[in-house]
């Protein structure tokens, strides 16, 4: 009796990445990671990935940003799930650290070392033989002139920058920065943001956490939002907004007939409120269905013979996103 050979279509093992929490060319992969410290759960079944470019990590205090960064760099082990850096476990494979650097949030810096000695020490651990590399790193963060000063006498902002120099001296492909702009003055912030963007544009994976949301907005191509150790949102900040169907949005509408437009807008199902903003000299429309409103508004204006002068989302910044996500 002959055997019947049946064939089945092979499943696609590598489907295209659609979830904004993941990237196709991932260098850091976080898979269903949970971390707890005694009774406190710091991360809960978190999955996301990071690739070349600048990614922002946002969340309120206690959201798990720092724990995630420590897990990614292998400083803490995960209780469940896995973290992979270039396909390797950062807890088990110390070779991972040759390609990765962390700038921790803590202000602590080694006592008794000058800035140059500190950066040189890190360079020695990474076997960077270029004797000029520490000075280049110090120049990169504008600390070259302070090279012979003990790091434990540095201000908060200078400590952040010296830690960035210590990270850069190893020429990492993956740079994890925990609140790196803390303590920096506005000029230094702008310079550091520019530096991180350049590093990201150069093909490095740069992961930055910050509470200063407008800076992350300027800095990151992609944002991961954590709340209570869980993934709350991911993607570009506009894309995150689009996923939040139930979050109210405020749209400024200026026209040549404000009163008539206000009366007409009240009749739209997608509109939940209309107020007049005297400062902006226009109507502020609150909606829960932004897409529907965007389609309905021009039709309404045309039907009512009203000329629209300006239509602008008022809360399309990360600041407002963050408020709504953590509410």
């Amino acid at each position: 009796m002959g055997r019947t050979v049946m064939s089945f279509p092979m499943p696609n093992l590598h489907p295209p990445v659609l979830d904004p929490a993941f990237v196709t060319d991932a260098t850091v992969e976080v898979d269903a990671v949970s971390v707890w410290f005694g009774p406190k759960v710091a991360l809960s079944e978190l999955s996301c990935s990071f690739g070349p470019g600048v990614s922002g990590l946002l969340g309120p205090n206690g959201a798990g940003k720092t724990t995630l960064m420590r897990a990614m760099t292998g400083l803490v082990g995960v209780n469940e799930g896995s973290v992979r850096v270039d396909g390797r476990d950062p807890r088990r494979d110390r070779g991972v650290h040759a390609r990765m650097a962390l700038v921790p949030e803590d202000e602590a810096v080694p006592a008794g070392l000058t800035a140059r000695q500190f950066v040189r020490y890190i360079a020695d651990l990474h076997r960077v033989a270029d004797r000029g590399a520490p000075d280049t790193a110090l120049q990169t963060v504008d600390l070259f002139d302070e090279g012979d000063r003990p790091v434990d006498t540095f201000s908060k902002g200078m400590r952040q920058r010296i830690k960035i120099a210590a990270a850069l001296v190893t020429d990492p492909r993956i740079l994890v920065l925990d609140e790196p702009l803390n303590g920096a003055d506005p000029v230094q912030r702008a310079q550091l943001i520019l530096l991180f963007k350049r590093l990201g544009a150069g093909g490095r994976t740069v992961i930055v956490s910050s509470h200063v949301l407008n800076e992350v907005e300027r800095l990151a191509d992609r944002v991961i939002v954590l709340v209570h150790g869980r993934l709350a949102a991911a993607g570009g900040h506009r894309a995150i907004r689009d996923t939040m169907d139930d979050a109210p949005r405020h749209v400024l509408v200026r026209s040549d007939a404000g009163r008539r437009l206000a009366a007409a807008l009240v009749g739209l199902e997608s509109v939940t409120g209309v107020t007049f903003d005297s400062k902006r000299n226009g109507l502020v429309v609150q909606t829960l269905q932004a897409r529907e409103f965007a389609i309905a508004l021009p039709r309404l204006a045309k039907a009512s013979s009203i000329r629209l002068v300006e239509v602008r989302a008022l809360d399309d910044s990360l600041e407002s996103l963050f408020r709504e996500l953590v509410r």
């Binding site: 020695d124 651990l125 076997r127 033989a129 270029d130 590399a133 504008d142 020429d171 492909r173 310079q191």
Partner: peptide, 29 residues
């Protein structure tokens, strides 16, 4: 501030002349 220009290739090529890690750790200690 300037972007570091040292490439991975360049770094790798000079690693062999680096100071011993062990000595670096002792001196650091």
């Amino acid at each position: 501030m300037t972007t570091p220009t040292t490439s991975s290739t360049t770094t790798l090529s000079v690693r062999s002349r680096s100071r011993s890690r062990l000595i670096a750790i002792i001196v650091y200690t």
